[in-house]
Nucleic acid binder design. Structure first.
Lengths: 347, 347
DNA sequence: CTGTTAGCGCCTTCAG
DNA sequence: CTGAAGGCGCTAACAG
């Protein structure tokens, strides 16, 4: 690997001058030498050694993407397409912005911050963080952070805070309202796990709001928690489909994955959608399209999420000061497909 | 961030001694000082600055995962679950082995190698590489490489070569043979794009072999190339289903994704599976389970692939010499589900 | 406009 | 067993 020193020798100039050319400081170098050095750089296929940069704290050019470990455990089970997709988009945008992406999975904030320190990482993108972890990140932050889909208290959104999320409340509200507009009044809600947090909680609150506005009384029994393990989940769905669910005409799921999964379980047990239930998903990813009937769902632009998060982060890295807090919630879109139907007029 | 020097001051010893403790060179430090230093390291939460390591070529602890750009373009379209899954598994194993993962997408071998040089990357894992790119990597390699699912000529598998793949030929052979055992003799083959390369080619050759052994004559028209763009692909499937496909009773797809996609198109056009066609997939991922009927497919262990690739690579990194070539093709498993059926006895 | 110098943190000699 | 010294490549500060 060629070094600046070697290039300097080659063109009979000093390393500083070479460095100036590399950094495009045109004003500091004569046009003639500028050209000569640039040629030499190309000829020798010069690459700057990142060790040198790191050591002088001149910027590592690394952005780390931190994935919450618990989420990841599931990802490998269900292959959560949201995470998969967004990682691809993040990598693309990080690369386009001239940075390198380090991917790190950890359940521990401390571990993630150690990584950031060791590599002098310029900024972190944090995916799927629980609220309490987000707080820890914010409190111990040494460098710019951008969260994706994280809800924290206003009080934690100080200057420098960045979050790019989705109007989850609105999405939950819209899709529930749509069901109500079809005549449904007995609408159950299904989520991943017992304790609703983050995006699922907002979607749930939107659902409740829509019920309430329509004068429908929500009861705790209308909420169903699904196990992340396929077998348990399937057994549970089968069981309730023969019992509790008989009271409902529509089922709202917090994700396309869960909705599609449920449709299959129902199908296997002779239940037809939307004849027996109207069902809705959330995300508008591959699962809502690769199921029959296709899901009525809430669309989001995952690419945009990734690009915005990276761009805000990079801006903050380069401006070198905190800047105002940013908490963008992207708009959602109701996608009506075949999994929902009007309730038949009954007398 | 605490440095070795600071720790040294703290305990009134030299940096060298501290460094020795950090590296566990017990023999070189008195037991007493060893303890004292270790305590100080913990107290101060010491993290070694990677810049220092890099600069001295003491090992970056980075393994780069290189994704072929063309593949990735598709990944973002179809969210190819194989890539998604394996990236998760790779990250996990790399972390477990004490390395950091840098994820990089590039269509250019040169770009990837520049990255490797700049960061003094210790080893590369290359996913979805075309054969000609693989050759370039091998020719220009400066450090250990591990390929996943790459087929290159024997002549390129010199010492140091590592590839972890699948018995794709066997898989294609087994699944076709299974169809034949059900009585099918008119079996079409569907792949992604015109020019069969890599794993798809092997699967195809397995299919042909099975046909040939059963005395079935393969003709070029039995091969169908699918467009990666959903709309074009769907239109094409619909079109041929009303025409050319009438001659076939079974359809072999190179992936679960394509098979599930086709089932949906057929379903939308009133074609029932397996009544009208028997259909097979390949991979046994989420798509074969999230479709009705579930796909008869070929199973592979993606986690094992990732773990083996990382472990072989790390072994090579640590042993510091090339070692014998490794070209492991993992076993496949025929998974019989509902998308295939016996051909009815006709007279 | 150009060059010299110093220092970032670590590790490996080598000398005590 | 311990310590001092040098060098990895780069850049910023400063001197010419």
């Amino acid at each position: 690997m060629v070094t600046i020193k070697e290039i300097a020798k080659l063109v009979n100039l000093s390393p500083t001058t070479v460095s100036n050319v590399i950094h495009g400081h045109k004003g500091k170098v004569s046009a003639e030498n500028y050209k000569k050095i640039n040629l030499a750089l190309k000829d020798t296929n010069y690459i700057s050694n990142m060790g040198g940069r790191l050591l002088g704290h001149h910027g590592s050019k690394i952005i780390a993407v931190i994935l919450n470990f618990d989420r990841r455990a599931e990802v490998n089970i269900v292959s959560d397409p949201f995470y998969d997709q967004i990682i691809g988009f993040l990598e693309e945008e990080i690369r386009k912005q001239g940075y390198f992406m380090m991917l790190y999975t950890s359940g521990s904030v401390v571990e993630s911050l150690r990584l950031a320190a060791a590599w002098d990482i310029e900024g972190l993108i944090i995916l799927g963080s629980l609220p309490e972890d987000a707080k820890k990140f914010i409190q111990q932050q040494q460098r710019p952070l951008a969260f994706i889909d994280t809800y924290v208290d206003e009080s934690f959104m100080k200057d420098g805070f960045i979050n790019v999320g989705l109007q989850d409340f609105q999405g939950g509200y819209d899709i529930t309202k749509y069901l109500i507009s079809l005549g449904h009044r007995k609408i159950a809600f299904f989520a991943d796990g017992d304790h609703l947090i983050g995006v699922d909680e907002k979607r749930f609150l939107g659902y409740k709001q829509a019920l309430s506005e329509a004068g429908i009384n929500f009861q705790q029994k209308d909420f169903f928690a699904l196990d992340y393990r396929a077998e348990k989940r399937h057994a549970f769905l089968k069981e309730i489909s023969q019992d509790q669910l008989k009271n409902y005409t529509a089922l709202v799921f917090t994700s396309d994955f869960l909705a599609a999964d449920a449709i299959n379980v129902f199908y296997d047990n002779g239940i037809q959608i939307p004849r027996d239930f109207s069902i809705t998903g959330f995300d508008h990813n591959i699962f809502s399209e690769q199921i029959r009937p296709k899901l009525t769902t809430i669309g989001q632009n995952v690419n945009q999420k990734a690009v915005l998060a990276v761009d805000y982060l990079v801006e903050r890295i380069q401006s070198k000061h905190a800047g105002q807090k940013i908490n963008i919630l992207l708009e959602t879109e109701l996608i009506v497909q075949g999994s929902t139907a009007k309730i038949p007029e009954t007398v």
